[in-house]
Nucleic acid binder design. Sequence first.
DNA 1: GTGGTCTAGACCACA
DNA 2: GTGGTCTAGACCACA
Lengths: 124, 124, 124, 124
Amino acid sequence: MDFIDYLDSRPIYQQIADRYKQLILIGVMLPDEQLPSVRKLAMELSTNPNTVQKAYAALEREGYVYSVKGRGNFVRANETLKSKKKEELKGKMIDLIKEIQAVGLDPQELFAEAMEEAAEDNRD
Amino acid sequence: MDFIDYLDSRPIYQQIADRYKQLILIGVMLPDEQLPSVRKLAMELSTNPNTVQKAYAALEREGYVYSVKGRGNFVRANETLKSKKKEELKGKMIDLIKEIQAVGLDPQELFAEAMEEAAEDNRD
Amino acid sequence: MDFIDYLDSRPIYQQIADRYKQLILIGVMLPDEQLPSVRKLAMELSTNPNTVQKAYAALEREGYVYSVKGRGNFVRANETLKSKKKEELKGKMIDLIKEIQAVGLDPQELFAEAMEEAAEDNRD
Amino acid sequence: MDFIDYLDSRPIYQQIADRYKQLILIGVMLPDEQLPSVRKLAMELSTNPNTVQKAYAALEREGYVYSVKGRGNFVRANETLKSKKKEELKGKMIDLIKEIQAVGLDPQELFAEAMEEAAEDNRD
DNA sequence: GTGGTCTAGACCACA
DNA sequence: GTGGTCTAGACCACA
């Protein structure tokens, strides 16, 4: 259950937030389901409560969860979340496409090759 | 000629390195051509010489330039550079594809939409 | 009858107190009418009795109800209540007006626009 | 220059952020002007650098400043900021209007009285 | 020097 | 018990 990767260049609070975004978007965590308490998750991940707090604050700010004082953090009904995440990912894809074009390569070809390799990785 | 964008989230040394990588890959800078001296470029960009030094070090480490003590930095023959850059970009693309799949979206569809929007941006 | 909104940023005890203030001010609850017991209301709202207790204490402190030991909580005669609430709201309005002026906007114009939008919301 | 008010119910980081929002919106701080460094402002306000950091992070997230690693935080060109702030304030005004209507008072009348009193306060 | 992240630990409001 | 804020102090990347 330990999903912190110290080799990952993303800061810890970001990894935690990203992980929960994913769990919410794919429906593993359902609306109004409670997230682990700040302290409990900090213990489980052997990290500092402040770090978890920072992750939860980001999740609330971006509309993934709502926080009730004295009760805990809960998953928000995710009406628009998926399309928001899609826009975010599309933005990343556009940036990458431009970077590819900037050095004179063909995005379509590179995408196709990457899809193949990604499929191979998944088979492992 | 000022190619530093302070609104860009990449650190400055990274922006400088990326810019020269691009110039070399697309052939604007030719093999054995000399890069501006650290001091001169630092002046031109009104940035810290340490920063330019760091960018040049990165370029050398990644094989884009070679450095001659007391003479300066020069563009390497770019035989294998292009394929190396391609691998780097493919790696990024694979990561992004996995992120897209992780939230249950279709990479092919998202790529197609991103290509359209990137084309629109270029028309501006 | 459940008037707690977990998406509301106000703490729960505050929401309960505000709700009763409103019921009393508009005359739905009449002078000397008894409020539900702490336990009963806590059950109805599936919340903590401490929370209801805190709401009732606030109502008493602000003069909306009086408490009789061993009997319960009762609505106070609302002679001056309405004008007190009005002063409270006017205080909030003054703060908001000052905040609007502090950034160089026109309170009158903003108020007019807000009134229109509030009317639209009510039509829903 | 000390703009922290310990009697204010807003948290310190919020007060700092609000103060700079105001300075930027009314044009006291101009685009690309540098904010005091995190450490320096913390010293000036006798508060903790983390608290200032939190305020600056909020300002960046909301588009008021941009942050350059190793250089500092700078005011962003405020094209859309003013209209964003206006919407924020209008939202507050709408909430307040609804609260006024909920207890059967007349928002227009209360607004007029508040304007008068706000004017008196300013004369002090 | 600059900003950003993190730990350890305290304290408060709230349920 | 819960979340939120804050202090003190360390450490890292970057300019």
